[in-house]
Amino acid sequence: MESLSSSISTLFSTTIEQQPYPMLSNNINTRCHCSMKKTPTQDNVLSYQKFVKFALDETNLSTKGLVPSYLQEEFSTLKAVDGKTELKMCSFQAPKIRLLRSLSIESSDGMQVLDLAIFPEVEYDLPIFCANFFTTVNTNIVVLDLNPLHDVMNETRYKEKYYKSLIPLGLKYTELLPWGGKLTSESLKFFSPMVIWTKFSPSHEKHDILFSAFKDYFKAWLSLMDQAKEETDISQIGLNREAQHRYLTWRAQKDPGYNLLKRLIGETLAKGIVNKFLFNGVKELGTKTFLDYFPEYEVEGGSINEKRSIVGKSFESRPWDTRGVFVGDTFS
Rank of each mutant, 00 (worst) to 15 (best):
S7V: 10
K84P: 03
S91K: 07
I128E: 00
L260Q: 01
W197I: 13
R31N: 03
M153Y: 15
N132H: 11
F315M: 08
K199G: 01
R251A: 12
F12R: 07
E155T: 04
Y297K: 11
S235D: 05
M194A: 02
G238C: 01
E284Q: 15
L78M: 05
L278I: 03
T184F: 05
S76H: 11
F200R: 01
W179K: 08
E160A: 05
T135I: 01
F119C: 09
D292L: 03
V143I: 15
R318W: 15
T322Q: 12
G324V: 14
I265E: 09
D233P: 00
T59N: 08
F277Y: 02
T268I: 07
A252T: 12
K219G: 04
L116H: 08
Y217S: 11
L114E: 04
F12Q: 06
T63F: 04
P168L: 13
V274Q: 08
E186N: 13
F331T: 10
A213E: 10
T287G: 04
A252H: 13
A117D: 06
K288E: 14
T184L: 02
T41I: 04
S187Q: 11
S104N: 14
A80I: 05
L4W: 10
Q244C: 11
T232D: 04
M153A: 13
P20K: 05
V195L: 15
S201C: 00
N259R: 12
Q49C: 02
K50N: 14
T232L: 00
E106W: 02
D57S: 12
D115T: 09
E86D: 12
F119H: 09
S9G: 08
D151P: 10
K271M: 11
Q227F: 03
R323K: 13
T289Y: 02
C34P: 05
L116A: 02
D109T: 07
P202F: 06
P95R: 08
I16S: 08
D321Y: 13
F54A: 07
D43T: 00
C90N: 10
E186G: 12
I97Y: 08
P127I: 04
N147I: 04
N132K: 06
D82L: 09
F331D: 14
K215G: 13
D329P: 15
S25P: 03
P127N: 08
T77H: 09
E298T: 04
Q18T: 12
K229S: 02
Y247D: 04
G83I: 00
S317L: 09
F200L: 01
E175S: 11
E316T: 09
M89H: 07
V113D: 03
D145C: 11
R101Q: 14
F12D: 05
